[in-house]
């Protein structure tokens, strides 16, 4: 998915650069012609606008870049609480993996699970005993 969005953005960028270059060339040519015409006939120079194809190219290039950028965004988070919570419960870490294959940094599972595990009240001696028993049983 990322390479599609990147290539579309690059294409749009090339088109936009081309449009800019054409516009610059066009205006340089126009001013040269106006200067030569003025020296010949001393008439007031006519202001000319850009040709239609350059304008269209610019607009199309902008939209292509926009399309590429939009395609490249990360999937949006669910807005509704129950959908988001359900995603956490159903998919676990897998649902929050970004393009690089890593779990999102701000993913923390159920944010309220600490209210049940209560890390500040942990009974470390009991946990040690249970772990030792688990090892004895052959883990």
């Amino acid at each position: 998915m990322t390479w599609i969005s990147k290539s579309i953005t690059t294409l749009g960028g090339l088109l936009l650069a081309h449009a800019c270059y054409s516009a610059r060339e066009h205006s340089a040519l126009q001013s040269l012609r106006a200067a030569s015409a003025a020296s010949l006939t001393s008439l007031p120079s006519v202001t000319t606008s850009l040709p239609l194809d350059i304008i269209i190219e610019t607009i199309v290039a902008t939209f292509i870049i926009l399309l590429g950028l939009v395609l490249g965004t990360r999937p949006l988070r669910p807005i509704e609480w129950r959908v988001w919570a359900g995603k956490i419960e159903r998919e676990g870490e897998e649902g929050f993996i970004d393009g690089a294959g890593e779990v999102n940094k701000d993913y923390m599972g159920n944010p309220f699970s600490a209210l049940e595990s209560r890390p500040n009240f942990v009974d470390i001696r009991k946990q040690r005993r249970e772990f030792a028993e688990w090892v004895k049983k052959g883990g």
């Binding site: 923390m108 599972g109 699970s113 209560r118 890390p119 090892v135 883990g139």
Partner: peptide, 14 residues
């Protein structure tokens, strides 16, 4: 991950 409190994990993960 080491970033979440690990009090209720099964022994193998601990």
């Amino acid at each position: 991950s080491l970033l979440y409190p690990a009090t209720q994990l099964p022994p193998a993960s601990a």
